[in-house]
Design a protein around this nucleic acid. Structure first.
Lengths: 142, 142
DNA sequence: CTTGACCTTATAGTAACTATAAGGTTTAGC
DNA sequence: GCTAAACCTTATAGTTACTATAAGGTCAAG
């Protein structure tokens, strides 16, 4: 039996986060010691480690809750997990593409800013570039 | 003079978001018509367009507020903007690298899941892979 | 004179927590 | 026996950039 502080140390999850997970029913309500302190056992440690590992894979807490719910009923959640994973992968790939586009645009603006004359007027300042982009007069995406 | 709804249409920013920007002092307190409706002029339109453009570049509202504060004092904020941009660019590149690592890890797990036998036991289920990764017994990053 | 499309304010909710306040418990040292 | 620290407890507010909702006032058309 370990206290919340020990559980925190063993898993690297803050005590507040552990209480939060309990609150949103990701972790079961734990037993209490005589002094009303929470007490955890090995299965709690394992469950919380599962959660942190899934969080490292950027699974949403809601998804993790569903996966654990399957597990709690001894149904293998694999099919569900595989689906979540596939969705995660495409979502991440979209995010990467978005960020690459954004980085390119920012890099272009930044380079343009570097080549600007020292005696800056508002009209040719980087701020102007923020407004207009690099003179593409037509808006493009949604 | 345009109403908040017209400003919203001209800029693509929702009326609630406009009121929110006013609340956090990103937009000035507007004049009111006799009926207490907000009234905006061209400078408000321009300012809000600047904000949306900067948001498209993923600038935080706090950064945008600082940039506009310079502008409001007729100081060219270019140096500041250039710094924010440079920070943004490296932050974005880090995020991209993180996401690429994550995607690779997920893709590996997903592939491993596809090759698993149909008669699944918990021990060899994808869930197990979530917990352990692909048998790398040593933790790696911070 | 009512219906619908506007506008107003204020408040709560989102995700995944962190931080703070205000207090109870336990252990170690003096 | 007392005090200080290092734990634990609950409840609440804050973070970011908004969206959604409630409950109501205003205005133009029919």
């Amino acid at each position: 039996m370990v206290s919340i502080g020990e559980l925190s140390q063993q898993t690297g999850v803050s005590t507040q986060a552990i209480r939060y997970y309990e609150q949103i029913k990701l972790l079961p309500v734990p037993k209490r010691a005589g002094n009303s302190y929470r007490e955890y056992d090995d299965s709690d440690v394992e469950r919380l480690q599962f959660v942190t590992r899934a969080r490292q894979l950027d699974f949403a807490l809601g998804d993790i809750a569903e996966i654990l719910a399957f597990r709690d009923q001894n149904e293998p959640p694999c099919q569900y997990v595989m689906n979540v994973m596939a969705q995660q992968i495409s979502a991440i790939e979209e995010r990467i593409a978005d960020l690459q586009r954004l980085r390119d645009e920012l890099a272009t603006l930044h380079r343009a800013g570097l080549t600007m004359p020292e005696d800056i007027e508002m009209k040719q300042c980087v701020c102007h570039l923020i407004k207009t982009g690099l003179s593409n007069e037509d808006g493009n995406d949604e």
